[in-house]
Amino acid sequence: MSTPDATTAGMNAINREWRRFTFEQRFIRFAFYFIAVAALVMSLRHIEFIPEFLYDAPAQVQDFFARMWPMDTAYYGKSVHDALIETLNIATLGTLLSILLAVPVGMLAANNLVPFAPLNYFAKLILVSSRSVNSLVWALLFIAVFGPGALAGTLAIAFRSIGFVGKLFGEALEECQRGPIEALTAVGAPKASVFTKGYWPQVKPAFWSIALFRWDINVRESAVLGLVGAGGIGMAMDTAQNLFRWDQVAVVLLTIFVVVILAELIVTYIRKKVL
């Protein structure tokens, strides 16, 4: 096929080698890949690994499931049901409390609402600390303070959620359009009114979807709090497990599974219908 562009191509033939990245870009990417692989290899070599345990695993798993069946369905009425209600209450109250605590922190973190960098950083520090500590660890802390039970669990859920809710709420605030806010400021509205009439309508959908999403996560989280003594269905599981009653553990697991699926369905439904 004749290529009339051949002459032009010939003229510009110098410096025509094409690379996707510059040398520096390739070098830094390669460095990252290298570090990632090196970290993985080192971890694999260093980690404590007892092969005998692995040989045993299939038999153990089989044994585990064999002991689960038939399930001790009577256990549901005896212990699981009340514990389940407690779990749901912990999740819901914990989410509500976290919203109360997180909204002011999120507002402080939003740079357009509070144009003062040190305060923004302070708020962000609170949010990161809240997220870095696991809910089980929060639970242990609150158990040390308030003793075992649902109170410690609720506070653990609430404190663990502040970081999540506050971060997303703060980001939603920062994404607000300036127009309506400027208009309100221009008519001389007080700060509180600027917030309720300028910012709030814009972040309202995001707010509710964050709250629902977190509630969904908290249902899962609150199910395990009982393992360290912070109330809820996890306690029923812990008891059964300590007695090696796997047929009862199975009931608890099934209950958690059903509740988690239901919670997700509810949240999806509400998001679709209402938001």
Partner: peptide, 9 residues
């Protein structure tokens, strides 16, 4: 833990 025992695995 039940399947492969206590530890990192």
């Amino acid at each position: 833990v039940k399947a492969v025992g206590f530890g990192a695995i």
